[in-house]
Design a protein around this nucleic acid. Structure first.
Lengths: 211, 211
DNA sequence: CGCTATACATAACT
DNA sequence: AGTTATGTATAGCG
C-alpha cells in the first residue's frame, strides 16, 4: 500500500448511517483530487432500482446479481435446512435455474390439493361425474378426484424426467443454464461458493414430510 | 476495534480532509471511555454456513434472510427486466413463494419441449403410436406430439387457476405464504421495499416472447 | 421488531 | 475477469 503522498489515510472510524439527513459536513474538499494519488476507483455507487438502460451495464449487473442471488439462496438453504428453487428468465428468455426446480415444482403443485383437501375435510366429496363437456381440471377444484391428480402429477413428473434425460444426452441447450443446490442439509461448510461442482443437477429429495 | 484505539491512529490531516466521505465528527469520541460506554452491540458476526442448531436463532435467520432474498430478487427483476420466481419450503414444509410462480412454472415446463424441438429440427417426427402400454409421457420425449403437450399445458394452467381461485375464496391457507413481484418492467423507483402492497398475487404476464 | 457494528455484495473502473 | 471503495444485508442483543 503505497499511499505515497496525499494523506488519504482512509480513516473510517465509524461507518454510521445517518437516520434521515446525511449532514454533509462542510468539509473543505477543495482539491486534493489531484495527483491521481487517492482512490483508484469510486467504489460501489448507489443506484436507483429501475430498469438499467445501457445494455452492457445491464448485462453485467444481471450476471453478477444473479450469482449473488443464487449464493444467498444456497446459504439460506443450508443455514435453515430449507428447500429453495429459483426460476429466472432473462429478458431474452434465456432461463437460469437454481435448485431442484422440478422436485420443488411438483411439491408446489401438489401442495394446493393437500391444503384444499384438509380444508374441505368432512365435506364428503361425492365423486362428481363429468356431466358436461368440460375437462376434469375445469370442474370445481374440490371435485378433482385424487386419482386424477395422481395421474396428473405422474405425468408431470414422468415428462420432466424424460425431457431432462433427453436434454442431458444432447449436451444441453445454450438457452438453458441451471445451478443445482438447495441441498436440504449439509455440505462442507468450507467450500461454500457456487463452484462448478455445484452447478450440476442433483437428485436430492430431502426430508419431505419429515416435519 | 475500540474507537479508543482508532483515535490514536486517527488520520485527521491538518490541512487536507477526507476527499469524498463525510465522516461523522470524530471529536466526541476522543477518549470518553465510560459514561455511555462504547459499543452497544458487537455488530454482525461472522457465521459458518452450516445448519443452525438453535431452533430459535434458525427461525429468525430464516425469516430475515428469506426477506433479503426476495428483496434481492425483486431488485434484479426490475434492474434487468427479468422474470423471477422463487419457491421455498421451510423445514416444516411451509411454503413461501416469490413472483408469478405459476406463470414461470408453465414457461419453464414449456421451455424444454421448445428447445428440444428446435434441436430436432428437420428430423421429421413421424408420429409414433402408442404401440406399447406406456403412457404418452413415458414414450421418448421427441415423440410427444404437440397436441398432447398442448393438452397437458392447458390442464396445468387450468388446474392451477381453479386451485388459486378456490384458495383465495377460502382466504388462504396458513401453510402458504406468497409474495408477488418479479414485475417484468417498472414500478415507482421510490417505493421499492417489499410492502404489503407487493405481497399480493399479481396477474402479470409481462413481455413474453418479446425478445 | 428496532438498533448497531460489521460481514458481505457489488458499481465503477481496468 | 480482477480490483477497490462503498452500499447493503444481517448477527447478536434489548
Amino acid at each position: 500500500m503505497e499511499h505515497g503522498e496525499a494523506s488519504s489515510t482512509t480513516c473510517l472510524p465509524s461507518t454510521e448511517q445517518n437516520p434521515l439527513q446525511n449532514l454533509t459536513f462542510p468539509i473543505k474538499q477543495q482539491r486534493e483530487t489531484k495527483l491521481q494519488s487517492s482512490k483508484t476507483t469510486k467504489g460501489r455507487q448507489k443506484i436507483e432500482i429501475k430498469e438499467i438502460k445501457e445494455k452492457n451495464r445491464r448485462q453485467v449487473t444481471f450476471s453478477k446479481r444473479r450469482t449473488g442471488l443464487f449464493k444467498k439462496a444456497a446459504e439460506l438453504s443450508v443455514l435453515c435446512g430449507a428447500q429453495i428453487g429459483i426460476i429466472t428468465f432473462s429478458r431474452f428468455q434465456r432461463i437460469y435455474t437454481f435448485g431442484n426446480v422440478d422436485t420443488l415444482i411438483e411439491k408446489y403443485l401438489r401442495k394446493a390439493p393437500v391444503m384444499l383437501r384438509s380444508h374441505l375435510d368432512g365435506e364428503a366429496l361425492t365423486g362428481e361425474e363429468d356431466v358436461d363437456g368440460r375437462m376434469w381440471w375445469e370442474r370445481a377444484v374440490e371435485s378433482v378426484r385424487e386419482e386424477e391428480m395422481e395421474e396428473y402429477m405422474k405425468g408431470l413428473h414422468g415428462l420432466r424426467e424424460n425431457l431432462w434425460k433427453k436434454i442431458c444426452e444432447m449436451g444441453g441447450d445454450p438457452t438453458v443454464q441451471m445451478n443445482a443446490q438447495a441441498f436440504p442439509n449439509p455440505m462442507a461448510p468450507t467450500d461454500w461458493k457456487i463452484t462448478d461442482e455445484n452447478l450440476t443437477v442433483r437428485n436430492d429429495q430431502g426430508h419431505a414430510g419429515k416435519w
